[in-house]
Amino acid sequence: MPSETATWMGIGVLALATYLTRIAGYLLGTRIREGSRTYRIIQTLPGCAISAVLAPSLINGSFLETSAICSAAVFFYFTGRILSALSVGLLISILGTHWLLG
């Protein structure tokens, strides 16, 4: 573990960089005319980003992790109950891991 001073500086770096990601998009977005082609393209980008974050977990995760993610997604898709869907996913993951490692 790095020294306490280094740790606090590291936390500061994380905080600053994360804040930059939060304001950069907005500041750029104010320059895009509403209704323009660029405007319509950027409406699809957050979905692309979420999809790009999710997909590697499905491919590289264990069978148990992938099952937990898919079960939660299918449950939510058909019932619309988000908390129940989260519980289903977590239960499969936690019980399965305990069963496999326990």
Binding site: P2, A17, Y26, L28, G29, I32, L45, C48, A49
Partner: peptide, 29 residues
């Protein structure tokens, strides 16, 4: 890790948080 890789930390935060940039782009609208 020791020594703390400040640049890698910043790049990681910018990369993982990049979806916030894309979400922010839509916010003015």
């Amino acid at each position: 890790n020791e020594p703390l890789p400040y640049l890698a930390l910043a790049v990681t935060a910018l990369s993982v948080g990049s979806r916030h940039v894309l979400m922010g782009l839509t916010l003015p609208g």
